[in-house]
């Protein structure tokens, strides 16, 4: 029926091919312990500890400059904290580069979209598979035998993601020509393509209108439900955070001021103060 005899049964689901790490749902996947990070004299993060449980949606919130993005950058190995430890999948990790974090199964999206603007949606998402590809450049350049088979497999996985995010109509459109909301979705697609154990989303809904926010919330929930992906997200829209997340960490001026379920956090006086803009004396 088609060139390569791939039979994709209708309704078949996207499988996550990463080997099982032995961590059960509900056990800590990532533990951040007493992390401090400073740039010269500026302390971005001070002595923060929290954990992310497998299978949950964990939100990190806080006012501007609270250190949320720095925290995400620490988790995915872009910044190296001066103090404290990070344990991912039960392994304490030392200084790590970003691609090592990616290889370990951490994927992320960015506050300011970081896609390849001139490439199509399909190719952009395909780049997310790079850590899963085994053939070297020479094989891929030849594109015969194993490399061809490999590409077909990956393309199939990417097509599942395209279907999942309902972006079939822009499959071949260069990303630069897409509206902002769709670019955000493509970025999520690229992160998903890595089949991450932990997905970091940096303000996935910034600058979106209500409808786009609703769509994105739906996708985040579906990713979590269907693939069991653990998600840590930074978001400003409190309504979205409270609806989506299982647990919330609240940062303010680089410190943790609250941690718990959305309801607990909502009742926390420190959090209310921080969000109401009460002046800081410290």
């Amino acid at each position: 029926m088609n060139m390569h005899d791939i039979t994709v049964k209708h309704g078949q689901e996207l499988r996550m091919t990463r080997p099982d790490d032995g961590i059960r749902r509900g056990d800590p996947l990532l533990v951040v312990d007493n992390i401090s990070l400073s740039f010269g004299g500026v302390k971005a993060i001070t002595d923060i500890s929290f954990d992310i449980l497998k299978g949950e949606i964990r939100a990190i919130i806080g006012p501007n400059g609270a250190g949320k993005t720095s925290m995400l950058n620490v988790i995915n190995g872009f910044y190296h904290p001066q103090e404290g430890t990070i344990t991912f999948r039960g392994e304490k990790r030392s200084k790590m580069r970003t691609h090592e974090a990616a290889n370990q199964g951490i994927a992320r999206t960015f506050q300011n979209i970081a896609l390849f603007k001139g490439m199509s949606v399909l190719d952009n998402i395909m780049t997310g598979r790079i850590t899963l590809m085994n053939r070297n450049m020479a094989w891929q350049a030849l594109w015969r035998g194993p490399a061809e088979r490999e590409e077909i497999e990956h393309r199939q996985a990417v097509e599942h993601i395209i279907d999942f995010l309902e972006i079939e109509h822009i499959r071949k459109t260069p990303v630069g020509r897409l509206p902002y909301g769709l670019q955000k979705r493509v970025e999520l697609g690229r992160a998903l393509a890595a089949e991450p154990a932990l997905l970091l989303l940096d303000e996935p809904m910034a600058g979106m209108n209500l409808e786009e926010k609703e769509d994105m919330s739906r996708y985040i929930l579906d990713v979590n439900q269907q693939f069991g992906t653990t998600i840590a997200l930074i978001e400003h829209d409190m309504g979205v955070v409270m609806d989506l997340s299982d647990r919330v960490v609240v940062l303010d001026y680089g410190r943790k001021i609250g941690d718990g379920t959305p309801d607990e956090v909502r009742g926390n006086q420190d959090v209310i103060d921080a969000y109401l803009g009460v002046s800081h004396d410290d």
Partner: peptide
């Protein structure tokens, strides 16, 4: 026929 996952199924 129906196109799913980028391929026409028949």
């Amino acid at each position: 026929r129906h196109k799913t996952f980028g391929i026409w199924q028949s």
